[in-house]
């Protein structure tokens, strides 16, 4: 069994209005040293070992569903879990 932690965020070229709103709110809370905020999505997938190498499968799941690669990029970490 594997644990895949997947992070999906907007590409740099894509405006992130929610991130900007949070950035503004942090400034109102007097955290003036916050430069920028990026809001993204975090997924934890527990995956049984299958035919396909786990990283290939996670890549495929990201491309097909978890991220919209038109406007989002993703990265992930995979760890093996004890059964």
């Amino acid at each position: 069994m594997y644990l895949a932690k997947v992070y999906v965020t907007y590409k740099n070229s894509i405006l992130d209005p929610k991130g900007e709103a949070i950035n503004d709110a942090l400034h109102r809370l007097a955290y003036q040293n916050v430069e920028s905020v990026t809001l993204g999505k975090y997924f934890e997938l527990k995956v049984k070992a299958g035919q396909q190498p786990i990283a290939d499968q996670v890549d495929e799941m990201c491309d097909r569903l978890l991220a919209n690669v038109n406007m989002e990029s993703y990265r992930y970490e995979i760890t093996e879990l004890e059964d």
Binding site: L15, P17, K18, A21, N68, N70
Partner: peptide, 17 residues
């Protein structure tokens, strides 16, 4: 339709949020 790949591009959150 954009998610399904039948049309190009994507729809993002409005600029004003």
């Amino acid at each position: 339709l954009t998610e399904a790949g039948l049309l190009p591009g994507a729809l993002r959150a409005n600029q004003s949020s």
